[in-house]
């Protein structure tokens, strides 16, 4: 099919082309809902079965990082939305600026995620052979925790053992939590990385002045994708970070 200007050959009009692209993007996004949905279901069932261990494991993740990341990501959604607006009203420079801002915020998010993953690595909370919920309490000083925090963790672990029947069960069930934690945040981060790649492409195109009020479908569709990834995080944050913080 030949392409005439912005119009691909299979379409009759630009309107039809835009409509198809938007519809296609939404259709893709609902497949993503179901894709993440399988993980959310797995999480829900395990969270229900192992409520105590899950809330304990959740408390070993730093709330502050999660909250900051939520703000960062929602901020990036704002800048993304603003770049769509700029394209629609024909402010070509602003499109580029907002896209770059979005990319920066997205990178900040991934960086913070990296710090969090690193903490979990140090604490031996990465599922696998070296997984050990008792690592920090057994090796004071190895983890970045204060003495009070460690003492608190010790008492909570004791209580948990009595509830679920010993340290082996505590380890097994919290490993499930962290498998889900890494599965869900990892898949989310992968989507962010893909999104960052798309943003890079948009920035290059935008610098060439490609996006105009007449034709800005890529900006809009990448925007839809980016907001969707934001929504996934909006759910991940309370589910993974905010279990029984009281």
């Amino acid at each position: 099919m030949h392409r005439t200007g912005d119009l691909y050959g299979q379409f009759e009009t630009l309107e039809q082309q835009k409509e198809s692209a938007t519809l296609g993007m939404w259709t893709f996004l609902i497949t993503e809902i179901l894709f993440f949905g399988g993980l959310f279901l797995t999480y829900t069932i395990n969270r229900h079965t192992y409520a105590d261990v899950f809330s304990f494991s959740s408390r070993t993740i730093k709330l502050s990082w999660g909250a900051i990341n939520t703000v960062v990501l929602i901020g990036s959604s704002l800048t993304m939305a603003m770049s769509v607006w700029s394209a629609q009203v024909g402010k070509k420079k602003l499109v580029t600026i907002f896209l770059i801002l979005t990319l920066i915020l997205g990178t900040v998010f991934l960086g913070i995620k990296g710090i969090e993953y690193h903490d979990k690595y140090v604490e031996h909370h990465i599922p696998g052979a070296s997984f050990d919920m008792y690592f920090c309490t057994n090796n004071p000083g190895a983890c970045n925790l204060t003495t009070e925090e460690l003492a608190q963790e010790r008492t909570e672990l004791k209580e948990l053992e009595d509830k679920v029947g010993g340290p082996v069960a505590v380890n097994a069930h919290s490993q499930l939590f962290f498998s889900l934690y890494f599965g869900m945040t990892g898949l989310h981060a992968l989507h962010m990385i893909i999104g960052a790649g798309l943003l890079l492409w948009l920035i290059v195109e935008s610098m060439r002045g490609r996006f105009s009020p007449r034709w800005n479908t890529p900006v809009e569709n990448v925007g839809l994708y980016w907001h969707f990834v934001d929504i996934v995080w909006i759910y991940l944050f309370p589910l993974l970070y905010l279990i029984d913080r009281h």
């Binding site: 179901l34 894709f35 949905g37 993980l39 797995t42 395990n46 599922p127 097994a172 499930l176 599965g183």
Partner: peptide, 20 residues
């Protein structure tokens, strides 16, 4: 998408000895 994520979990479980 649901079978995709399910089989992905099976694969991860098999490769990394996870327990979903």
């Amino acid at each position: 998408p649901v079978i995709a994520i399910t089989l992905l979990l099976v694969g991860l479980e098999r490769m990394f000895h996870l327990g979903f």
